[in-house]
């Protein structure tokens, strides 16, 4: 019977490759393979270039007889990083990390909850979004002097500022992700009798996950910015405070070392969320 000839595998697969242009998971393992191979090569060349740039910088500083207080030599920064790490940098690093994560956890929990709330009760978002926009657009560092008057010079004002910097970012991105969920997918779930909670867990949340991860990434970067900025304003703690301290003493190699630590922290945040995204949301490639 003609109807038996259904397994149109070869022509079908050709059309599948055409369909892959938009969203949807392409062969995940293959892409991961390609990326890794490419990545190794790229990582090698990126590292090589970085070495060349740093070496060049070192020699330029030697040839031009630039004083350390004007621009510290890369070797001096690296030496300071290794020798002074336990005494000068470890403690402020832990202080920054602590406030950062505390702020991130509080901010993102509130942000994600608000996103869920405005998704389930769409009428609410016209009341909430003005404040969210204000919070996103205002640099939260600006609040630090005020918060310090209220809460003292401990961790509290900085954790609040970091929460206010990360939360709205997580909220805006998550809410957008939830809202963008394909209406037909929701209809599909409803046609099977899904409750609002099931729709959320099985359809909206996984659909929004790539956006939520992006929200966390951007929020974290804003959070780090706020953390370091707030430490520079006052309080005598953390990496930001060390930046002010070393620059006021014109200890530029130590200043450079702290800068390298802050930058590494930022790149670490970025890499972590890129990794999470590839792991949990690879279908959205």
């Amino acid at each position: 019977m003609a109807t038996d000839n259904l397994a149109d595998k070869i022509p079908d697969f050709n059309s599948a490759t055409v369909n892959q242009g938009g969203n949807g998971p392409v062969d995940v393992s293959a892409i991961a393979g390609i990326r890794r191979a490419k990545g190794l090569k790229e990582i090698a060349s990126v590292i090589a270039l970085a070495i060349v740039v740093v070496t060049l910088l070192e020699f330029i500083l030697i040839w031009t007889h630039t004083e350390a207080y004007v621009f510290p030599k890369p070797t001096a920064i690296i030496r300071s990083l290794f020798t002074d790490f336990p005494t000068l940098y470890w403690k402020p690093l832990t202080q920054t990390v602590q406030t950062f994560f505390l702020g991130l956890i509080i901010g993102s929990t509130i942000g994600l909850s608000l996103a869920v709330l405005v998704t389930l009760k769409p009428g609410l978002d016209i009341f909430i979004s003005p404040y969210i926009i204000i919070l996103v657009t205002t640099p939260m560092v600006a609040l630090i002097p005020f918060l310090m008057l209220k809460f003292g010079f401990g961790m509290t004002p900085r954790v609040i500022a970091i929460s206010l910097a990360t939360g709205p970012m997580v909220m805006i991105n998550s809410a957008t992700g939830f809202r963008r969920t394909n209406a037909e997918l929701i209809a599909l779930g409803k046609s099977y009798g899904a409750t609002e909670f099931q729709l959320f867990r099985k359809i909206r949340f996984p659909f929004a996950l790539p956006m939520i991860i992006v929200g966390f990434m951007v929020g974290s970067i804003f959070g780090l910015l706020t953390a370091v900025g707030a430490e520079m304003v006052g309080g005598g703690m953390g990496l930001g405070n060390r930046l002010i301290y070393f620059s006021s003493l014109v200890q530029m190699s130590q200043f450079g070392a702290v800068l390298v630590i802050v930058a590494t922290f930022g790149v670490g945040i970025y890499s972590f969320f890129t990794f999470i995204n590839r792991k949990w949301a690879s279908w959205d490639a």
Binding site: G189, Y192, K202, D284
Partner: peptide
């Protein structure tokens, strides 16, 4: 009692084919 089939296949891209077929069972 009523099954719906849409213009788009509406398979969830983060689930395999069999996991998609199992979705209504999980919901119910």
């Amino acid at each position: 009692r009523i099954g719906m089939v849409f213009q788009d296949s509406n398979l969830l891209p983060w689930r395999t084919l069999i996991e998609n077929i199992e979705l209504p069972f999980q919901i119910k």
